[in-house]
């Protein structure tokens, strides 16, 4: 656990028949992929006029995300580099058309055809140089410029990503901005290490304010959060005795604080009542 697939092998080799089958039959994985796709569709904010839209699914894999698109009533075309994943998509009889292709080579699609694009856990693969002639910067540039071309004006593209660090965030978003997109990164469940999800949110040709992330309470406003969240290092160096005294006091206040913390992470927490933090009766 913990190792990133893109650090192991190139996508077309990592997703061999065996991995592709496991990937698509794991119910937890299906659930995560589905909820991320639903969130990405929500961020796409397609006009709700009842007319089906044509979407592009980059790195469609076995079609898990495509099924969500079909369910919401839209048509889609999927692109992936791993033949084994596409084979599984065929077995599952997905509705969209599938293409075997490498997004880093540019998309080769005509101008203004698509009403939106999504990519679930896809574009971080572009940050790696898997072959000697690969250059991540050039591949990202080719990808984003060709993507910009094939979207209609005002269309959005949402990519769920797992960036390793700020450098990778920059590596991913700067070629997108250079290609003409506006937008940024939306972080859902910022405070929860497990539920935290990042979406690269891009708009074609228009300036649109970034959508609000999920899993955030009002007091936690975005603008100053980076500076407010500095850790107070000094507090940690209190004398040993005081520290020990504080530890034994896990009273009502402490419980409330912890519950608040968990709520901010988006966990299910029972509500605060008059019973919260009360001592049990001494029965003996």
């Amino acid at each position: 656990m913990g190792s990133r697939p893109e650090a192991v092998a190139p996508p077309e080799i990592f997703y061999d028949d065996d991995t592709a089958r496991k990937y698509t039959s794991n119910s937890r994985n299906i659930q995560i992929q589905t909820s991320m796709t639903e969130r990405a569709l929500e961020l796409l904010n397609l006009p709700k006029d009842g007319v089906p839209k044509l979407l592009l699914d980059i790195g469609c894999g076995s079609g898990l995300s495509g099924e969500v698109i079909t369910e919401s009533g839209h048509h889609w075309v999927g692109l992936d580099i791993a033949p084994s994943m596409l084979d599984i998509a065929l077995d599952r009889e997905v509705e969209g058309d599938l293409l075997l292709g490498d997004m880093g080579q540019g998309l080769g699609l005509r101008f203004g055809m698509f009403d939106g694009a999504i990519g679930i856990s896809t574009i971080q693969w572009l940050c790696n140089a898997d072959k000697s002639f690969h250059n991540p910067h050039l591949r990202l540039k080719a990808f984003f410029t060709s993507l910009y071309k094939c979207l209609t004006n005002g269309a959005r593209a949402v990519f769920q990503v797992y960036p390793e660090n700020d450098d990778q965030r920059e590596l991913l978003s700067s070629p997108a901005m250079k290609a003409g997109f506006s937008g940024g990164i939306v972080v859902d469940y910022k405070d929860s290490p497990k539920k935290r999800k990042e979406y690269l949110f891009l708009v074609c040709g228009q300036e649109v304010p970034l959508p609000l992330p999920e899993g955030r309470t009002e007091d936690n406003d975005d603008s100053g959060s980076e500076t407010n969240k500095t850790v107070h290092v000094l507090d940690r160096r209190r004398p040993w005795k005081i520290q020990k005294n504080n530890k034994s006091e896990k009273g009502r206040e402490w419980i409330k604080r912890k519950k608040e913390q968990m709520r901010r992470r988006g966990d299910d927490v029972p509500p605060d009542t008059k019973y919260t933090g009360r001592k049990r009766k001494n029965h003996f």
Binding site: L54, V77, D97, L98, L99, Q105, G108, L109, R110, M113
Partner: peptide, 19 residues
């Protein structure tokens, strides 16, 4: 592959002007 997709695809080879 449907003709819908065919109508969007063009050849992406380097140097090709009208693919």
């Amino acid at each position: 592959m449907r003709l819908l997709t065919h109508n969007m695809l063009s050849s992406n080879i380097k140097g090709v002007v009208n693919g």
